[in-house]
Amino acid sequence: MNLFEKLYDENENAKVRFVGFTTEQARYDFGIVFTNLFFGKPLVVCMQTGRSTLLDPKDLEDKAYLQKVFKMDTHHQAEDLSEFFKIALPSPSFETQYE
Rank of each mutant, 00 (worst) to 15 (best):
M1I: 11
M1P: 15
N2E: 14
F4Y: 15
L7D: 10
D9Q: 15
E10D: 07
N11A: 13
E12Q: 04
E12T: 05
E12A: 08
N13I: 03
N13F: 06
N13E: 11
N13V: 06
K15D: 00
V16D: 03
R17N: 03
F18M: 14
V19L: 09
G20Y: 02
G20H: 06
T22D: 12
T23Y: 05
T23V: 09
T23I: 07
E24F: 01
E24Y: 00
Q25K: 12
Q25C: 00
A26N: 09
R27T: 07
Y28N: 02
Y28W: 09
F30H: 03
F30E: 00
I32D: 04
F34N: 08
F34T: 00
T35Q: 12
L37P: 01
L37Y: 01
L37Q: 10
L37G: 12
F38C: 14
F38D: 11
F39S: 13
F39K: 10
K41H: 07
K41Q: 08
K41G: 05
P42V: 01
P42Y: 03
L43D: 01
L43G: 01
L43W: 02
V44T: 12
V44C: 11
V45S: 01
C46E: 11
C46W: 02
C46T: 06
M47F: 01
M47I: 10
M47S: 04
Q48D: 12
Q48E: 08
T49N: 03
R51E: 12
R51Y: 06
R51C: 00
R51L: 06
T53Y: 05
L54K: 07
L55Q: 02
D56W: 04
P57M: 14
K58T: 05
K63N: 11
K63P: 02
Q67A: 10
K68Q: 14
K68H: 12
K68C: 03
K68A: 12
F70P: 15
F70N: 04
K71L: 14
K71T: 11
K71V: 06
M72P: 13
M72F: 11
M72S: 03
M72H: 05
D73M: 13
Q77M: 14
Q77I: 05
D80W: 02
L81P: 00
L81F: 04
F84E: 08
F85M: 13
K86E: 09
K86R: 14
I87V: 14
I87P: 02
I87L: 07
L89K: 13
L89R: 11
L89H: 00
L89G: 07
P90S: 10
S91I: 13
F94H: 14
F94N: 13
T96E: 11
T96D: 08
T96Y: 12
Q97T: 07
Q97M: 06
